Computed example of a mutant assay.
Amino acid sequence: MTVRQLGGALGVLGGIVWIARWLLDPEAGSADIMRYAGLGLVLLGLVCVGLTLVKGQALWLDVVVGFACPALFWAIYEVVRAELGEAVLFHGVLGIAWVLVGAVLVVKGKPRVDDRSQVNA
């Protein structure tokens, strides 16, 4: 499993938690715990995906981009959530989106085989 696939799997888990929060009673005491658990899993997944966005020798750039991706998502998430209030439907829709995006990352996150290496073989 690559780092990108791990990020996709964490995104799927976070999306499932948000979907479960949407389907369960939103007034229950576990609703806030599920919101933060889903957010934490999605942010960890974004760190993994962000680490794979930059290719090169600069480790510091990998780290900066790796932590900039979840920071950007979190900022947008908080602005939209504050605008909508405590709409549980928002987390349900966001959870479905993350399950779909994460599934694509898990399936398509494998490194591509270099065609030049197969020609020489």
Rank of each mutant, 00 (worst) to 15 (best):
59 L>D: 02
26 P>F: 10
67 F>I: 15
31 A>T: 11
63 V>S: 01
89 L>K: 11
79 V>L: 10
56 G>K: 03
29 G>C: 00
57 Q>F: 08
38 G>W: 11
91 H>A: 05
108 K>V: 13
49 V>T: 06
69 C>V: 15
26 P>A: 13
121 A>M: 03
16 I>D: 02
52 T>A: 10
22 W>V: 00
95 G>E: 09
110 K>E: 04
13 L>V: 14
98 W>T: 03
121 A>F: 09
120 N>V: 12
21 R>N: 07
33 I>S: 14
16 I>E: 02
19 I>G: 00
25 D>I: 07
62 D>Q: 12
111 P>D: 15
68 A>K: 07
102 G>S: 06
93 V>I: 15
108 K>R: 13
87 A>L: 09
54 V>S: 06
109 G>W: 00
73 F>I: 02
24 L>F: 13
85 G>N: 12
56 G>Y: 12
54 V>Y: 14
108 K>I: 06
56 G>Q: 03
102 G>Q: 08
31 A>Y: 06
90 F>G: 04
28 A>V: 04
50 G>N: 03
28 A>S: 13
16 I>W: 08
96 I>K: 00
37 A>N: 00
51 L>P: 02
41 L>H: 03
114 D>G: 01
101 V>P: 06
16 I>N: 00
40 G>H: 09
58 A>C: 03
112 R>D: 09
120 N>G: 04
112 R>L: 14
90 F>H: 10
108 K>Q: 12
105 L>N: 01
68 A>R: 08
83 E>N: 08
20 A>T: 12
36 Y>F: 12
88 V>W: 03
93 V>H: 04
55 K>H: 11
106 V>W: 01
91 H>V: 02
99 V>N: 07
92 G>E: 12
13 L>S: 07
18 W>C: 00
35 R>Y: 10
7 G>N: 03
50 G>R: 05
115 D>N: 10
59 L>A: 13
89 L>E: 13
72 L>Y: 11
63 V>T: 05
106 V>D: 01
51 L>D: 00
65 V>D: 00
39 L>A: 09
70 P>W: 00
29 G>F: 12
9 A>Q: 02
44 L>G: 14
65 V>H: 01
48 C>T: 04
10 L>H: 05
74 W>K: 05
119 V>F: 05
